[in-house]
Write a protein that binds this DNA or RNA. Structure first.
Length: 451
DNA sequence: GTTCTAGAAC
DNA sequence: GTTCTAGAAC
């Protein structure tokens, strides 16, 4: 694909265009004003979530801007950020002392998206900033909010709304959407106060929702708060549905779902909730689901793109597969292939493998769909590397074949676990020897840049 | 599965 | 000084 010069030019041009146009999110500190959440803890939580978000999205085309009138709050965030920011580019998250609604006129920083706090009713004027926004946009804003979100808002969720093109906020400030967040309250004289413990958890959730909403809007997808129904008929749904010609299972099948035995260490069960109720997770975690399977983003991706395709029926691991599960394995493969095609459309440089770990660490059968760049901050240990680049990784193709021929799958645990200790070896070339993970990571970057 | 830590090895 | 390894806790 790199030999095609016109295609390559297109990629480069797209990159330059995106670089020119930086999409920004402007937001205030959440819950530290009227909600009386302790400032230092808020800064800890806010900065951690921001850090996690920047890690996940290492693009160059966006920026986060926190803008606050209260310099005590700003200082707390600045200090905390300095402490934890690691190698994350400073310019992707900046702080400013001023008014969120005058970022462009005061600082020349245009934010296409801004955040404002609200309460579960989403009524106008619940706080100062909120009031200024409703004053500036007029009654149309409240009507639009009511239309989009007829049900009460959930604390911790984000509710984006477009503002009219003829409003001053759009014309003067370049603001396109306001992401309203229902933030936790600790002030006993305001509605629904919660304890510090609960508020911490909810504040974290609020920052997550805010950033997820921003990200989805930025990449042109509609953000779906957990209280609203999933939309049908998008181009994406059509692409995914088109694959399931042979083995579409009805809900009668899924109702027969066998429940897993309780047990195992807590962390081994983390995949189960996704199978049982995928609809309760945000789009940022669940990529796709239907009656038969669910596709999620790996929480600790070991490459630029790393997803898990999981059957919704409970199957503990590959060794539990029987010949009658062949159709299921084929369905996983088929949907995995759809994901790959979609991802390759977005970035033609990517190429993929899909398959299973011979000895998985988590309960519930899961097929990895992983791009072969292996560039990711979550790839840290030899074990990670070897689990995807040695025989330990079993291609879906192979599993299908074994199941077809032998009707069951059995792997020697000890043999495969020992493979994880093998010396590091590049999966793309015969480099003499790479001793350390940091060297391997540098080497992988070179491969990526050359591709 | 991850994170954190201590001590060993390079 | 950096990186690895192994073990504990979650």
């Amino acid at each position: 694909m790199t030999s095609n010069p016109s295609k390559r030019r297109k990629i480069v041009k797209k990159f330059v265009d995106e670089k020119k146009q930086i999409i920004r999110l402007g937001f205030p500190s959440i819950s530290t004003k009227f909600a009386e959440f302790p400032i230092d803890i808020a800064a800890d939580i806010g900065c951690e979530v921001i850090k996690e978000f920047l890690r996940l999205h290492r693009g160059l085309d966006f920026e986060l801007v926190m803008i606050e009138q209260d310099s005590k709050v700003l200082n707390a965030f600045e200090l905390k950020w300095k402490e934890i920011k690691d190698d994350l580019d400073a310019f992707k998250f900046q702080t400013k002392n001023g008014n969120l609604l005058q970022l462009k006129s005061d600082f020349g920083i245009e934010c296409r998206f801004i955040v404002a706090e609200t309460t579960w009713r989403m009524k106008p004027g619940t706080n100062q900033l909120n009031k200024q926004i409703f004053d500036a946009v007029g009654s149309r804003l409240h009507e639009e909010l009511k239309r989009l979100y007829p049900n009460p808002g959930v604390v911790g969720e984000a509710y984006p709304v477009q503002i009219p093109k003829d409003s001053d906020l759009h014309i003067d400030e370049g603001i396109e959407q306001i992401i309203f967040v229902v933030s936790p309250n600790m002030n006993p004289s305001r509605p629904d106060p919660v304890s510090l413990g609960k508020a911490k958890e909810l504040l974290k959730k609020t920052y997550h929702s805010m950033l997820n909403a921003f990200w989805e809007l930025k990449i042109g997808q509609e953000y779906r708060p957990i209280t609203t129904k999933k939309e049908k008929g998008s181009a994406f749904d059509i692409l995914m549905k088109s694959a399931s010609k042979s083995s579409f299972k009805t809900s009668a099948e899924s109702s027969k779902r066998i429940l897993p035995k309780v047990g195992g260490k807590g962390w081994t069960n983390v995949l189960l909730p996704y199978c049982q109720s995928p609809e309760t997770f945000p789009k940022s975690e669940v990529y796709y689901y239907d009656d038969e399977l669910v596709i999620i983003y790996d929480k600790y991706p070991k490459a630029k793109k790393h997803l898990l395709v999981i059957p919704r029926k409970y199957i503990d691991n590959i060794e539990e597969l029987k010949k009658q599960d062949l159709q299921l394995v084929r369905a996983l493969k088929e949907k995995g292939q759809c994901v790959i095609e979609k991802m390759k459309q977005e970035n033609p440089k990517l190429f993929f493998r899909m398959g299973f770990h011979a000895v998985p660490g988590l309960r519930q059968l899961h097929m990895h769909v992983i791009s072969q760049d292996f560039i990711s901050p979550s790839l840290k240990h030899k074990k990670h590397w070897n689990s995807f680049t040695t025989e330990f990784f079993k291609d879906a193709e192979e599993i299908e074949k074994i199941l077809e021929e032998r009707g069951e799958i059995k792997f020697n645990k000890e043999y495969y676990e020992n493979l994880l200790k093998s010396p590091l070896k590049c999966h793309l070339c015969d480099t003499k020897s790479i001793k350390f993970i940091p060297d391997l990571k540098k080497h992988l970057e070179e491969h990526w840049n050359e591709s």
